[in-house]
Simulated scan of single mutants.
Amino acid sequence: MKRHRHFTLVLVAALLFGGPAAAKAPTTWDGLVQVKSKRLNLVYLQPGADFRVYTKVMIEPTEVAFAKNWQRDYNRTASSLSGRVSDSDVQQALTKAVKAADDIFTEAWTKGGYMVVTEPGPDVLRVQTGIVNITVNAPDQPTAGRSYSFSGEAGYATLFVEARDSMTGALLGRAVDQGVAGDNSAAWRTSVSNRADFRYLVEDWAKAGVRGMTELKALSPIKP
């Protein structure tokens, strides 16, 4: 059930920000109501939810996924076989990304004054986060000869966040946001600069989530 829920969230994020044919965002979602947000594209909250009781967070492992056809489409345009992205490259990148994202979110919540715990409790908020639809414009794959990777941005990704009461599992809120990594007009891209640019994007999302929690406490209980 838990895995199915996470897959559903990834699918919805893909539909909302999947390109020209992206679906129109619903006004309600599993009993949540869409509210305006200055920080994220889409935010949904449970009417009546009270976030003031939460002083700790239980962080689930970050879901990380590339855009469905990103590897295939990139390899079609690669100038040589050595410049293609292999299945091994993708799996290694995902493993490193999960670890990096988990560290970033843990650090952000800790700096925000929340204790990060591993067990449920009456004052514990359970947070599930995902970084999906990842597209890297210029992966900078090693090739036999000297080559350079160029792109106006490092790439794109979509964030989704789900918050639940850790004791009851009650759904309190969800958010979805599309972001651009490395939107700095640096045409020459390297593996090092790509990692740094995507890290900056995730750090911005993590900080926005903690600031958003502070705002939700001030607004609690959430009005219908």
Rank of each mutant, 00 (worst) to 15 (best):
R84S: 09
R5Y: 07
L219S: 12
L9Y: 10
E153V: 15
G112W: 04
E119D: 09
D87G: 15
Q34K: 15
A218K: 15
H6A: 12
A186T: 06
I134E: 02
N194G: 03
R39T: 12
S151K: 01
P221E: 05
A218Q: 15
V117P: 06
V210D: 02
P221H: 03
D50S: 03
A175V: 07
A186M: 01
P20V: 14
F105W: 10
D30A: 12
T129Q: 12
L172G: 06
R211F: 11
K96R: 12
D102L: 05
A170D: 10
M115H: 09
F105S: 00
Q34W: 03
V53A: 04
P20E: 14
A108H: 01
G18L: 09
D87Q: 13
N184Q: 00
A144C: 00
N194H: 03
E203R: 08
G212M: 14
W70Q: 04
V136C: 05
D30F: 14
A49W: 02
A13C: 11
A218P: 00
R199L: 11
Y156L: 12
G31R: 05
M167F: 00
S185Q: 05
D103V: 04
D140K: 00
V53E: 00
W109V: 01
E162N: 04
S147N: 10
K111W: 00
R189E: 01
E153P: 00
A175M: 13
D103E: 13
A13H: 05
Q141P: 00
D89Q: 06
L32Q: 11
